[in-house]
């Protein structure tokens, strides 16, 4: 299974598909012009995760330099869709943030509050 990635100069995704999890690494800058791209990608990711009945999606944003409010809205929308999905097909979402990037920890901390039962935030350094 492959998921169509975002591959723009500003923002890139690399998705590793495994039976136990989809792991998405995001690189670059997720700003206003990238909102539609990100929204589309998260919809594809969600559908693929549901279809594959995978238990977990990992979003590694450690290499991401910045994400603005519009792109965070795309994440909120994704989480809302996931919450509304039948419980049996729901998967967990694990965000991995860079402990040194304050904005990542702050924003993901707020995002996790939308669905603490589904979202987990892990911090680690870029090297680990």
């Amino acid at each position: 299974m492959t998921i169509q990635e975002i591959n723009t100069r500003e923002l890139k995704t690399e998705t590793e598909v495994q039976k136990s999890a989809f792991t998405v690494k995001m690189t670059g800058f997720a700003e206003m012009p990238m909102m539609a791209e990100l929204d589309g990608f998260l919809k594809r990711l969600h559908q693929s995760a549901i279809d594959a009945q995978i238990p977990e999606v990992v979003i590694d944003i450690r290499p991401l330099e910045f994400m603005n409010s519009s792109c965070f809205k795309a994440f909120v929308s994704w989480i809302n869709t996931l919450q509304e999905a039948p419980e049996a097909s729901q998967y967990r979402v694990r965000f991995v943030s860079d402990e040194k990037k304050h904005w990542q920890n702050r924003s993901l901390g707020a995002l996790a509050c939308f669905a603490v039962d589904l979202i987990k935030v892990e911090t680690s350094s870029m090297g680990s």
Binding site: N68, S69, F72, V76, W103, R106, S107
Partner: peptide, 10 residues
């Protein structure tokens, strides 16, 4: 600050 923009939006 962008942190504030994000928290307002969220």
């Amino acid at each position: 600050h962008e942190d504030v923009d994000i928290v307002v939006t969220m």
